[in-house]
Amino acid sequence: MIAQTPQPPYYAVIFTSVRTETGDGYSEMADKMVELAKKQPGFLGVESARNEIGITVSYWESLEAIRMWKANIDHLEAQLLGRKKWYKTYKTRITKVERDYEFDGLKS
């Protein structure tokens, strides 16, 4: 599902990863992190896709909201587990969205 974001500016955290073969507990933790992020001040939405690489983009009102999410104790635990068992490699990028536009052929 495409996240419904407000008018720019806002921020995007782009998390790109390659997983290990160990799937044990990953899906449950990923679902838990999305639910937890939704409760964080400044959270705007999330989009995710996975094939050979996984890409998750979360949207935030501010850099401070992103810092608070990164420092969340449950998120810190998930980050540690990710490094220990679920990811071969990952990269996080943070960017300011200054403009967005869309096509929605589903709207009448």
Rank of each mutant, 00 (worst) to 15 (best):
L76D: 07
P8V: 02
K96I: 04
Y101Q: 14
T16E: 09
E102S: 14
T16L: 08
W86M: 00
V46T: 12
E21R: 06
T92W: 01
G54P: 03
E21M: 12
Y87R: 07
L63W: 01
K88P: 05
A71G: 04
D74G: 07
L81A: 14
F15V: 06
Y59Q: 01
L80F: 15
R83Q: 13
E52Y: 13
D24Q: 12
F43K: 07
K38N: 11
Y87K: 04
P9R: 03
A65F: 00
A12Q: 05
Q79R: 11
D24H: 10
G42N: 03
A78K: 02
V13C: 03
Y101H: 14
W86K: 04
Q79A: 04
G54T: 01
K85D: 00
A71T: 03
A49F: 10
Y101L: 12
E102F: 15
M29W: 06
R50T: 12
N51Q: 08
K96L: 10
A12M: 08
I73W: 09
G82I: 00
R19V: 06
N51Y: 08
Y90F: 12
Y87N: 05
A78Y: 03
K107G: 08
S58D: 01
R99W: 14
L63S: 05
M1R: 13
Y11S: 08
Q7S: 13
G105F: 14
R50F: 14
R19G: 06
V57Y: 06
R83E: 11
Y90K: 02
G82L: 01
I94H: 03
I94W: 01
Y11E: 06
I55A: 06
R50C: 11
I55Q: 04
A49L: 07
E77G: 09
Y101E: 15
Y59S: 00
L63M: 09
E61K: 10
E47W: 07
L80K: 15
Q79P: 05
M68P: 04
